[in-house]
Each structure stands twice: as C-alpha cells, then as structure tokens.
Design a protein around this nucleic acid. Structure first.
Length: 290
DNA sequence: ATGAATGTTAGCTA
DNA sequence: ATAGCTAACATTCA
C-alpha cells in the first residue's frame, strides 16, 4: 500500500506530532511482526525510556532514530498503517481519550502499540501481517545491506536526469525497473503505472528500447507525480490513512491505476490491465503503445 | 460461494 | 544471471 508519497506523508506527520517523545511501553499481540530482535521482551526493554530524536524515510522504510544510538525501522509492506492516538491512565490501564480513527475498519488490525509520554500512543495496524519492524544499532543499520542496497531517492536534488540514466539497468521492462528498489527507492505498483501513463510509455517496454526523449519524459513524470502525490497526502484508493486517520487526496489525480475498463482521460480509449509476474499493470493502449 | 486479486519483498527454483 | 513463482496472511471482489 504505502509507496514513497504515503510513507513521506506519514514521516512528516510523525515529525510534527511525536518528535522528542519518549517510549514508555510496548504491546503486541502478534510478535512475528518484530523481526529484530526476535525476543519481544528484549525489544521492549531496549526501547524503554528512549527518546525519539529524528524520524526519517529511506525508500519505503520509516526510521525512528532513538536516543542512545538505536534506530527503529518500520516497513509497512502492503497493509501496514501507523496511527496516532491520545490516551490517559485510568485504574492503571490505558484508555483512548477519543476513539476517532480507532473506530475505522483499518484499526481492527492493530498488532503493535507504542505508549509514549504526553499521553500519546502510536499503533501499527496491519491486516495481512506482512509489516516488518526491526530495532538496530544506528551505526550498524547505516552500514547494513538492507539500506545500502536501496537505490537513490527520486526526489532528491542530486538525482538529476543524468543520474537517472546512470542507475538504469541495461535491460528489463520499464515498469519492473521503476519498481526495483535497488534501482530507485520508493516506487511501487500504483505510481509506476501513473508515471508511465503520464510519460506515454508502455509498461512492458524494455529499457534498452527507450530513446533519450522517452527517458526524459519518464524522469520528469516521476518527479512531478511523486511531488504532487506528497502535496496531496498520498492516495487512499484502498485503505491508506495518515497517522491522524485522515485520507490522502491523490485519488483525483489517479489516471490509470485500478481504472481498468474506464476511459483514458486523455484520449477516451478504454484502460487495460495486464498481468506480469503476479502484478498487474494498468495503461492506456492508445497513449502507451508497445 | 468459490476462486482470484490485493499495495511488498525475500528467497527459492528452473 | 535472471525471470518467475511462492510464501508471509486476511480480506474483499467478481
């Protein structure tokens, strides 16, 4: 679900609301989500009393830098959501101050909660339980294969058109290449479809067949769409929510993803969907010729 | 009501 | 080397 714009939206919200807060307790009813350390009690103990000093995004990963040289990494995969709530102590138990977003369906699947000072709680809901949570030594994480294997951030200033061409592999289908996290970090199924529609490039075209002009269009579409999506707070076609429970508004900009059978907004041709390797690509067969 | 599809990605096989 | 499947899991859509 969350791709770069959604994760960026979450990270910005987190920075606004929980920077400087301390972790006071951790709860989970599905400890498999925590991959490192395996022992939940140790996980809990190491986190105890640590202050959240910085929150960053790397690709689709959320990194919480904690006091004392530790970093908590959360990858939401398909259906993970981070949600923020306010809580109070009553008879020794925590209770919600206001139910708010907690009544939404996405919140039936909360499997991990962080109790913070200032009566805040940060919850991870995850319907399909694919999300990944890891606690690292910050230094160790910085040097880890996990982060080092990530490609450049597509929105960074230093990611010029020249750089884009340099990181592209010699062959491969363009859609797959765009979604390859080791090539460029943060793009998934939704935004790759949207980028290629905007650039008028067929998703299964081989990168070796693309002209310099084609690549330029893809590069520009990528920068433009990702920035617009961040401005709109991400998409919410299925279930993405901001930590406040609010939706994102990229949907009105969504041209092809999950629009099979609808008319292309540019030329009126019916949008097609094709499956490749278990993933579907949506595109306009007229605007995006093979 | 059964089967297929669903944003991700690591890891395996051919 | 690499493309393509499977698994991790639960729900919704056709």
């Amino acid at each position: 679900m969350p791709e770069l714009p959604e994760v960026e939206t979450i990270v910005r919200d987190l920075n606004k609301y929980i920077l400087g807060r301390k972790i006071e307790d951790v709860w989970s009813d599905f400890k498999n989500i925590i991959k490192k350390p395996k022992d939940f009690e140790i996980f809990k103990k190491v986190l105890n009393r640590r202050k959240i000093e910085k929150i960053k995004r790397k690709g689709k990963n959320i990194l919480f830098e904690l006091s004392g040289g530790k970093t908590l990494l959360i990858h939401q995969k398909l259906t993970g959501h981070l949600l923020l709530g306010k809580w109070k102590m009553e008879d020794g138990n925590w209770e919600p101050l206001s139910k708010g977003p907690l009544e939404e369906p996405v919140n039936r699947f909360i499997h991990l909660m962080f109790w913070l000072d200032s009566k805040l709680m940060l919850a991870l809901s995850d319907l399909r339980k694919f999300a990944k949570v890891e606690l690292w030594d910050t230094k160790e994480l910085e040097n880890s294969e996990e982060l080092k294997s990530l490609g450049p951030e597509p929105l960074e200033k230093s990611f010029t058109f020249k750089r884009f061409k340099e990181v592209l592999p010699e062959k491969g289908k363009i859609k797959q290449v765009l979604m390859d996290q080791t090539v460029i970090a943060g793009i998934g199924n939704i935004y790759s479809d949207e980028i290629l529609w905007t650039a008028k490039i067929h998703p299964f075209k081989d990168v070796s067949k693309l002209s310099d002009g084609d690549l330029k269009k893809i590069y520009q579409a990528m920068r433009q769409i990702l920035s617009v999506a961040i401005k709109l707070g991400g998409e919410s076609i299925s279930d993405f929510r901001r930590i406040s429970g609010e939706k994102g508004y990229f949907d009105k900009e969504r041209k092809v993803y999950r629009r099979e059978g609808e008319k292309c907004s540019r030329c009126g041709t019916i949008i097609k969907r094709l499956k490749k390797g278990g993933r579907s690509a949506h595109f306009c067969p007229n605007c995006q010729k093979p």
